[in-house]
Nucleic acid binder design. Sequence first.
DNA 1: TGGGTTTCTGACTATCAGGCGAAAACCTCG
DNA 2: CGAGGTTTTCGCCTGATAGTCAGAAACCCA
Lengths: 242, 242
Amino acid sequence: MVSVWSSPDRPAYPHQALAVVLQVRERRLHAMLWQRPNEPFAGAWALPGGPLRPDETLGASVARQLAAKVEVSHLGHLEQLETRSDPGRDPRGRTVATAYLGLVTTHVDPALPDDTAWHPVDALPPTAFDHGSIVGSALARLRSKLSYTNVGFALAPPEFTVAELRELYVAALGYDVTATNLQRVLLRRGVLEPTGEQAPPGRAGGRPAALYRFVTPELSVTDPFAVFRPPARRGRDDEAEA
Amino acid sequence: MVSVWSSPDRPAYPHQALAVVLQVRERRLHAMLWQRPNEPFAGAWALPGGPLRPDETLGASVARQLAAKVEVSHLGHLEQLETRSDPGRDPRGRTVATAYLGLVTTHVDPALPDDTAWHPVDALPPTAFDHGSIVGSALARLRSKLSYTNVGFALAPPEFTVAELRELYVAALGYDVTATNLQRVLLRRGVLEPTGEQAPPGRAGGRPAALYRFVTPELSVTDPFAVFRPPARRGRDDEAEA
DNA sequence: TGGGTTTCTGACTATCAGGCGAAAACCTCG
DNA sequence: CGAGGTTTTCGCCTGATAGTCAGAAACCCA
């Protein structure tokens, strides 16, 4: 047990770890929220999370508290987002909150407690505290990262067709993207690769789609900034193969 | 005065706001550090910062504590970086620390307390706590943002030549960039504009350089991701002018 | 077997970063 | 006062990549 120390010139504050857990459900991006039964903000919806324990890191804390809500194995990605410290953010007294961004793959439907539900991010119910704006931050983070990293792996099932992947991106980004372009860009970047197999023929006919997977199930950035790059890195000799 | 509340199931922790203040000095990127006189880490160098007060936000706290070190007006940019929560990061007891990234324009030399000094980021002295790795995070953040935002304005003086700006970028990025390309890219993005005047002729002869300034003294992102963009945004009709 | 549907592939275009060299503008020295 | 050196600026070219589009491929159903 680690002792918590405080003194007049080292004031201490309750700290909570929050999580914005996002998942694409029925072609729309949803956030996991739970409904507060008590004041303050009784009836309003809040982000899952809770107090930081004396012996855990914030990352461990948010993972532990999420485990009480969803199967943790469904969490494909978890990263620190930002820390909110407005003294008035909780009317009961000051707390500091560190928010995390969590992503759940779209092909699972984890069981949730009764007070917890998924809400489309473009039509959130009344939210508690500053949680609404935290969801906004998470959205912005996800959307920009979708473009220059492979976070998509955390939203998509292990194998998928390009059309399915496109649906995910459309839902998460909030605007339309073409399957052709999505496929070419991701293939060129080397984050996507065909499995060699093909999906079962669709119910409505049409050419059966090839199956793809993300090459690496870990976050990697694609260095979108061709700008001000060292001239050395000119030719990409990654695949020096006859 | 805001009351701080705590209970067995809402443990509280001392929280400190830290700042990684960076400045380009003599063609090298430096970080501002102060030398600890006492244990733990006596003699090691630490990031400026200190305890969060009960009635201030983290942002206000870091600004306040920096004001004790440097003229705050020199801080061209300040943004939240990340929050460290390893229970063992301070051997005296648990503290949570939220780090900020601060940038100082290169044309000033603010007076510093005796225990505080600038250190080149590529040759840091022994650092206290986890502050060394926090500097690393700040470096990564600055370098990526230099490429897709206009943060440069926070490092550069109000007016400058392209050659001077290039020196700043070289120092901050850690690798060489060409003045030609830097100028063209920033002009094309519209973050840079000529003042119309030109710098006093150099001591070594040569064509006198034109003076430039950053168009906006606030952070703006240049949306580096031409990827997965809504097709609507095709032509840029920002400057629909005869 | 033909029509409809979906996916895949390649060709073409537009945009932008990066490299290179010539021209412009200034200095100093003989 | 002109020649040589230095620094900046500008224009042209190349290469990489995003975006569009149309046609071919592959499947289902009637």
